[in-house]
Design a protein around this nucleic acid. Sequence first.
DNA 1: ACGTGGAAGGTTTTT
DNA 2: CCTTCCACGT
Length: 761
Amino acid sequence: MNNTLFDGLNTEQKNAVECMNGASLVIAGAGSGKTRVLTCRIANLLAHNVPAHVILSLTFTNKAAREMKERIAEMVGEDIARNLWMGTFHSVFAKILRFEAHHIGFTSNFTIYDTQDSRSLLGKIISDLKLEKDAYKPAAVQSTISKAKNNLITAQTYSQNTDNHKRDAYNKMPEIHAIYTQYQNRCKKADAMDFDDLLMYTNILFRDNPAVLQKYQKRFQYILVDEYQDTNFSQYLIVKKLAEPQNNVCVVGDDAQSIYSFRGAKIENIFKFSSDYPDSKLFKLEQNYRSTQTIVDAANSLIKKNTKQIPKHTFSEQELGNKISLIEFATDIEEGIGVAREIKNLVADSELYKDIAVLYRTNAQSRILEEALNKLHIPCQIYGGTSFFQRKEIKDILSYVRVCVNPKDEEAISRIINFPTRGIGQTTVQKIVLLAERTNISVWDVISNIELAGDVFNKGTIKRIIEFRELIHSFRKDLSEADAYALLQRIVELSGIYSFLKSDTSIEGKNKFDNMQELLNGAKEFTDEEEDEISLADYLEKIALLTDIDSEDDEFNKVTLMTIHSAKGLEFGHCFIVGLEENLFPSQMSIGRPKDVEEERRLFYVAITRAKMSVHLTYALSRRKWGNLTASTVSRFVEEIDAGFITEKNTSRFSSQPTQESTMFANFTALRKEKSQNDRFAQFKRKQSAAAQSNTSSIPQFEPDNPRDIKSGTWVLHAKFGRGFVESISGTFPDSTAVINFENGEQKRLLLKFAKLKEVS
DNA sequence: ACGTGGAAGGTTTTT
DNA sequence: CCTTCCACGT
């Protein structure tokens, strides 16, 4: 039919694309062109007159969905591609749940609680139930409940099951069932769902409403699932139910890359696909088009050590390539510097920064690496860590929006009821919550009828609560008319957040103020960008389900720093995999549990196979943990790669002189205070406002230098103040300040990161 | 009600 | 090391 569709596909890929009906399992090794197969398969369906809106394609990140949509749009046109249902499980089914919310006792404006929100609620419940908080750690309780939800065990079934009771008693947390039950009640009363609820309630919706299920079964005639090896039971069942009865379901995955079991993912899903769908076809994509032969063979030699696998033989016909280098360092700091130096070497060999990635097991490792790269002036971008939207000031502002959209949102109310402080203290809040509990209404309902509780609160308190209520009411009035940006602007102003942050003159406070501005700019951009009428609820949902990978854009030439988990599905020319030490990678948590070590091994496999050209492994003999130096040994995984693929370089013997080392160390400890750089959203916005500022100035336009490069004792140009002499620089980036004597006679102390200075001779 | 300071406690990985 | 929690003073 459409021959161009199949151009350049190998036989197996072609077969996988061509097969339209029935169930198919595509085992796609790393770099085997699986995204291509998925996009071509969808394009092929469209070419056979399958309407776009009956195709549901579930991806692992929103970014993957966006990119796939773009590629399909190039093939079949934007008008058609836009009608495809494409996104993560969470975002697609959140959308559906909003349509169908009334069936399960929610409104379409329900809030999505993030990990922080749900943990905070759990903490409250634990203290409400008067349980020992030493035994009941919110994080542990949260993960137990999360696991239950991912296996579709509701609070009710959980409470009835004696096995759960036994296990919880063994873990010294016998009351988890009570916490779970109350947690679900509180969430429902708050019209809120956590991430796991999105999937669980989807299952409940389909289970209890056959007509609704039928509607979506009819709508989604073709279902595609990417990264199937990382689906959990809840997701598995959604797919299974929706696909019935035609079972036009195509799942793509690689058992060797299953790395999310901590989140409930079941590698078994991919193992048993063929028995779940007895008529299913199996396609194996075994040729790796991404990496050199050495990389593929080395990765294979590693993954062989795992016991249970779907048999496959992945191979590369690319060049043989360099061996994998292995470098030992004396300390974690030297490891960072060593990696930075190696990157310099690559760049000297005309490689681009953006084709290089540094991958690590834990986010905590990122700082030292970032410092080292900064030190050698290597541009880099960190993904993950505390995201912009999780910062306190941002969450506080967004909590106002959340309360406007859904006043029952208890977590949001408790964040803002006394922020900025308006004389409604802890005791008052506790009383309100207690009253809500006792009368079985929401916290907002109590606030709405606070006048009736004259015996519980004194007059002044009631007055203040009413003021708060009226404030929210005034925002809600504008909800339908004002766009996200306009309302946010009103919120920060009328709530007092604007003046509160403005009056905080500490460097931290300035940072927060700046973040607030960035949030507003981001909202403006969002409202401007979207063609359709966008509600605040949409804005919130977008933010709630955002991943840091989602906001990635490749236009900057920077080295990528990220966890291996985040690197899933990505590829880079050259990969540095750092911290290959026992108890770090494999993680300490996994050691002793063979199943977990296998997952760590798969994680290492994923890391290696991200690279096209070269892989560099590093480890340090000592590493700082909680401020203490701890000795470490090389990871078992390194030795599991066939030695023939590795060349060893030992630099720990050539480490710097003690004196140099100690000064270097001192510098780094000073640098360590550096924070908040790891946020691409913020950086992106900073860039934008920099551009905006230089346009409005009366001084000739100029490109500011990197603020890190500004030295004291030099002449600089400032957009507003003109020429000036840098008297001194103090503090560490990004909080470093410069005292500058300007030619107009003014002396200013400026935060370097905002000052937009350019050195002049 | 609210800010401060000192002590304790906490690290995988993420939608 | 860095964050969070609690007790105390205002």
